[in-house]
Amino acid sequence: MAPNKTADVIGAGLAGLTAATALAQRGWSVRLHERESEIRAIGAGIYVWGNGLATLEALGLYDQAAVGAHVGQVLESRDHRDRVVEEIPINGPGQARVLTIMRDRLIDTLIGGAKEAGVEIRTGSEVVEAAPDGSLVLRSGETSRADAVLAADGVNSRIRRQYDVVAHRASMKQGATRLTVPRSADFVPAEDQGKYIEYFSGRRRVLYTPSSETSLYVALVADEDDRPASRIPVDTASWIRSFPHLEKLLSACAGVPGRWDTFQFHTLTRWSMGRLAFLGDSAHPQPPYLGQGGGCAMMSALGLADALSGSDAPVDQRLRDWEYAERPTVEHTQRWSYRLGQLNYVPDAARTPLLKGSGLLPALGASRMRAARTIPTGAGRFAGSAPAGS
Rank of each mutant, 00 (worst) to 15 (best):
P353L: 09
G310H: 03
G295R: 02
G341Q: 13
L319W: 04
L354Q: 04
A363E: 15
S358E: 14
L304T: 11
G303L: 03
R335Y: 03
S282A: 15
A349Y: 02
K356D: 09
P353K: 05
E331R: 09
N344C: 09
A325K: 13
S300R: 11
G293K: 03
K356C: 14
A350Q: 15
L302V: 06
P285T: 02
G293N: 00
A363W: 09
A363P: 10
D312W: 00
L361T: 12
Y324D: 10
D321N: 05
V346N: 01
A350C: 01
A305N: 11
L290G: 00
V346K: 03
W336L: 05
R351A: 05
G310Q: 03
P347F: 06
A366P: 02
S282F: 08
G359C: 10
S282Q: 03
A277I: 07
V315N: 00
P285E: 07
Q292I: 08
Y338D: 06
D316T: 04
Q286T: 12
G291I: 06
V330S: 11
C296T: 12
L355E: 14
A297S: 15
E323D: 06
R318N: 03
L302K: 11
P287H: 06
A305I: 08
W336N: 14
L276I: 08
P362Q: 00
G291T: 06
L364Q: 15
R318E: 12
P285L: 02
L360Y: 04
A301Y: 14
R318Q: 06
G280Y: 09
A313S: 08
E331G: 00
P328M: 00
H332D: 05
R351V: 06
A307M: 12
L319C: 03
L343V: 09
Y324L: 10
Q292S: 06
Q334C: 01
G359H: 13
H284A: 09
R351F: 08
M299I: 01
A366Q: 13
T333V: 05
P362G: 02
G293Q: 08
L340F: 13
A307V: 12
L361K: 04
T352N: 03
D306Y: 08
A283D: 07
L355F: 14
